[in-house]
Design a protein around this nucleic acid. Structure first.
Lengths: 166, 166
DNA sequence: TCTTGACTTGGAGTCGGCTCCAAGTTATAG
DNA sequence: CTATAACTTGGAGCCGACTCCAAGTCAAGA
């Protein structure tokens, strides 16, 4: 269980799905802090680092810009987030964004399902789930999958012609 | 209930949250088909178009590249998607992507919640929910919120120092 | 009539996020 | 001793998605 195993950048890239170039790039822009080097100057990564890079990959998948990822890294390093109230605020608002993003995505899944199961029906995608953000959401809502009544209509022709299926 | 109300590009931008420039850009790259013009050449939009643009905005929020949005528009125009099996395949695979994206997001929400509620604990973010894609997922899983057992560990220091909180 | 404002167009510029390249170093295998 | 491979660096180039600009049109109001 010794966790002192180390990895080359190549192995790290393989394990995380983030390319070597990109990992170096993240280090360059200081999204990742400078990795330790071996005597020959090569970067060394540990399990720890790999987790961090995976976190980046995960956030990336969600379309989050690199700059917005910084607070996540900060909070993942600091043991106790409560010590940095500003950071906590940041996190809370990010949480709201993400929950709303999940709702958007869920609507798209529903949209696709409708389309797949049958043809028509309707739905909308306005994301005005702008809750007052700074407040109660402690008992985490857990992907509350946009209430079905909330869907109104959705996509429609709008110049069906000219749209090539490519 | 007459649905023949029309809107200027400005109104459309306001209603959809997509800028005028961007709407024109989408038309330029034929993501949106050429909008009808008034006699003076000004674009006119209808409820229909607004729905379509909202759909784009929605997909955009999820980080989907513009090119990938085309199939959605195609399927939203065509009444019966079943007539275009290739398109349906496209949709299915998009569905998988999105479901996996939801899982990623849910993990991040959980991560944040953990961080907010306390300090430590652990979780991982590998998104190897690569189901065989072409298969059974009909009874739509509805945001199945990544199984808790599936979370292993997650973010960790990895060079806590040097990370400025900005 | 002149100005204001909302639009049109084509095209140039910007920015984020890589991705690729060339030149150089070091380690191991033949 | 040399070639191969895995790395290092700094910097250039690229692509997607806007975003901005200049020049022009048109409609209504002072």
């Amino acid at each position: 269980m010794k966790d002192d195993q180390t990895f080359t950048i190549k192995q790290t890239a393989e394990q995380t799905g983030i390319s070597e170039d990109t990992i170096r790039y993240y280090e360059k822009i200081a999204l990742l802090s400078r990795a330790d080097r071996k005597d020959n100057g090569h970067r060394v990564y540990r399990q720890e680092d790999i987790r961090t890079i995976r976190l980046l990959g995960c956030l990336k998948k969600t379309g989050m810009p690199l700059e917005e990822m910084r607070p996540f890294l900060a909070v993942s390093s600091e043991a106790d987030p409560a010590e940095h109230p500003e950071l906590v605020e940041h996190l809370r608002s990010h949480r709201e964004n993400i929950v709303s993003q999940i709702a958007s995505l869920q609507q798209i899944v529903d949209f696709i399902d409708m389309k797949l199961e049958e043809g028509s029906l309707r739905q909308d995608c306005t994301n005005e789930i702008q809750t007052n953000a700074t407040g109660q959401m402690k008992g985490h809502p857990k992907t509350k999958a946009v209430s079905p009544d909330q869907m109104s209509y959705f996509a429609a022709p709008a110049k069906a012609d000219k749209l090539q299926t490519s």
